[in-house]
Design a protein around this nucleic acid. Structure first.
Lengths: 158, 158
DNA sequence: CGGCTATTGTTTATATATGAACTATTCATG
DNA sequence: CATGAATAGTTCATATATAAACAATAGCCG
């Protein structure tokens, strides 16, 4: 269904390129809202899931990642990581550790509870993701990824 | 460039469908950040621009839209619209009016200043959008929109 | 008419997000 | 080695976002 119909607009979106941009924008937004609801039952937010996912799959065993690394991998401001980790420490999902050799860094690691929560929800989330993207054929989804890569590539230039 | 390289991930994204979903998610996010910076020079936010754009193009002349209508068209919670309109009223971009016949509603209308700010930025923003989406051919961008519509269609079912 | 129900907008608590200014450290270079 | 630049994390002010609970109002229906 056309985005303008979904949003209940009375008049159509005039510029084709704007329609494309709004489609990316709103679809991302809708997927985010959907993820938020999914994870709410498990006592975490979509943002917290993404952070734990990164910690589990990207950090070398028992080392963790610094807040700066998390900030870069999640495309999120450093100050936002601070408050995010504050909340997640309070919820006993992650812990801050000192990094030997450079006292500026915090190493963030999953707690056993954090790992348990993550593993408890990861498989069913991936099934949900497969169902959602399964609306597209393999070649369609690959083309979609290529198109989005092209758009991001164009952004990097100017 | 692959998303995982852009984010500096050490290990790739394993599930193809998850890669597609993250591409939508992060591309939308990056476009939003880009829009925020663009509008900042003009003293408004991207969210405020979108709201004014809707008001200007979707409301019948001099009538305005209710907060509920804005909430539906922007896919945003009612309570968020309240605080958004609060800030925009303070910035003299919009005004709340009573709706004759139903005292529950507020009609939101652009102020002359709001209209001026909008018209002052709209054309150059659309040029920027055309440049960004111009990374794709016409048929590519049409295919992109179709794929995103399919994904949203699938979401509506369950 | 009178009460039940639905709707609009608001308030509050909470989470996420940025940018600017700050502290503490580390690094680089003369 | 000393000092100035760069970096990591924090704090603060502000904007956006949701959900839940609430008041005011409107509509429905016996």
């Amino acid at each position: 269904m056309k985005l303008e119909k979904e949003l209940g607009l009375k008049k159509g979106i005039q510029v084709r390129e704007h329609e494309a941009l709004l489609n990316i924008y709103f679809t991302g937004d809708i997927l985010k809202k959907r993820a938020r609801v999914f994870f709410k039952d498990h006592g975490i937010t979509d943002v917290q899931f993404n952070l734990m996912e990164i910690l589990y799959h990207q950090a070398d065993d028992g080392i963790g990642l610094t807040q700066r690394e998390l900030s870069r991998m999640l495309l999120v401001n450093r100050s936002n990581i601070t408050s995010l980790i504050d909340r997640m420490e309070k919820a006993k999902l992650v812990t801050r550790f000192d990094v030997p050799g450079d006292r500026r860094y915090n190493a963030i690691r999953l707690t056993p509870r954090g790992k348990e929560v993550l593993l408890n929800v990861e498989d069913s989330y991936m099934e949900e993701v497969k169902r959602i993207i399964g609306a597209l054929s393999k070649s369609e989804s690959e083309q979609l990824v290529k198109s989005l890569e092209k758009i991001r590539q164009g952004l990097r230039k100017k």
